[in-house]
């Protein structure tokens, strides 16, 4: 008994964390450092030359933000904006729809039947491989022959087939639609869980006060699910920043169609002409900084709750330990 008490368990903490730390060092930290290094070097061309620092180490970063000859913003900024546009236009209706549905599905006066069915169906698009979805939509929106054009011309909504994939507006609208369509179900389920978590007594009290649906939603539901909404917002934003599969496979990631996202920019710059690994490494770092900033925001959003929880746990543990100590 005495001997066991002397055992220092903290070494197991290190021991059990070692695999994670090792994998992290090798597969995340090292690549990040290497990426940072590459951004300042001469690594370009199909077969990059021996690694050497650039004369102007910052030239790649400068290039990323340099205006194009025609006076337009750089391709990198353009890709950031394209990404942001796609994300925003998909997220607003996504969140709106999810909020609406979650309010409907949790309404305590009107019980919506077949909720399970709807949830399963709404979430379905999220589980399917994005690559499959992208190519499916590319085929659906084919020109001049394609299901969507077929429907639109048969229903006489359009007289002649529409070349969806030749216009930036329609291309981007479809990408936004796909994103929204794939994700609103997930957001909805998340929000429903949050709404269910609200103490029902609060709703009851409001009802006694004569609050209508809208007031309940606005005054109780919305403020209560705000942390979860923020969480969804940040995760969605970071997910949106690394958007790759759908714009690439649906619209070939074409810049002139507004489908070149940052991830595609990084990919194209390094794996296609001009094969500039250094430039795309620099772009990765800028993206990295943006994501770190967002992660910090996420951390702060969630910290309060978490810290409070931890504190509670610790106290309970302490109490338990004391009790145990007394017992022994």
């Amino acid at each position: 008994m005495k001997r066991r008490k002397l055992v220092n368990y903290s070494k197991y903490g290190y021991l059990f964390a070692i695999p994670f730390i090792l994998a992290f060092l090798i597969f995340t930290l090292y690549p990040i450092c290497y990426t940072i290094l590459i951004a300042f070097t001469n690594q370009e061309g199909v077969i990059p030359p021996k690694i050497k620092l650039l004369k102007d180490p910052l030239s790649c970063f400068k290039y990323l933000f340099k205006k194009r000859n025609s006076g337009k913003i750089s391709y990198f900024l353009d890709s950031l904006i394209a990404t942001a546009k796609i994300w925003i236009v998909n997220f607003i209706p996504q969140l709106g729809l999810a909020l609406l549905l979650s309010a409907w599905f949790t309404d305590n006066r009107v019980k919506v039947k077949a909720q399970g069915f709807y949830k399963v169906v709404f979430y379905l698009p999220n589980i399917i491989t994005a690559a499959t979805v992208a190519i499916l939509f590319r085929t659906l929106f084919g020109y001049p022959i394609g299901p969507v054009n077929d429907i639109l011309t048969s229903l006489k909504i359009l007289k002649t087939p529409y070349y969806f994939l030749n216009k930036p507006k329609s291309t981007r609208a479809i990408i936004e639609f796909i994103q929204c369509w794939q994700w609103y179900g997930s957001t909805m389920i998340t929000l429903i869980a949050a709404v269910i978590g609200i103490n029902p007594e609060i709703f009851e009290a409001a009802e006694i006060d004569g609050a209508n649906r809208w007031r309940k939603f606005w005054n109780i539901t919305l403020p209560s699910v705000r942390p979860i909404m923020l969480f969804t917002l940040v995760t969605s934003m970071i997910g949106g920043l690394s958007m790759f599969d759908i714009p690439l496979l649906f619209a070939e990631g074409r810049q002139d169609l507004g489908a070149q996202t940052v991830a595609i920019y990084i990919y194209n710059t390094s794996f296609k002409q001009p094969y500039k690994y250094n430039r795309s490494a620099a772009a990765s770092i800028v993206l990295f900084l943006i994501i770190i900033a967002l992660s910090v925001a996420l951390f702060y959003v969630m910290r309060d709750k978490d810290a409070a929880k931890l504190e509670k746990m610790r106290k309970a543990e302490l109490k338990r330990a004391k009790a145990l100590g007394r017992g022994v």
Partner: peptide, 30 residues
Amino acid sequence: YDWKLKKAFFGLIMGIMMLPGTVTMIGFYR
């Protein structure tokens, strides 16, 4: 377990929680 670097470690996990592959890709690939 209670270990010295636990807090730092957990902070790290929170920090990199959302890091997408895009960011490390170039270094990883090279």
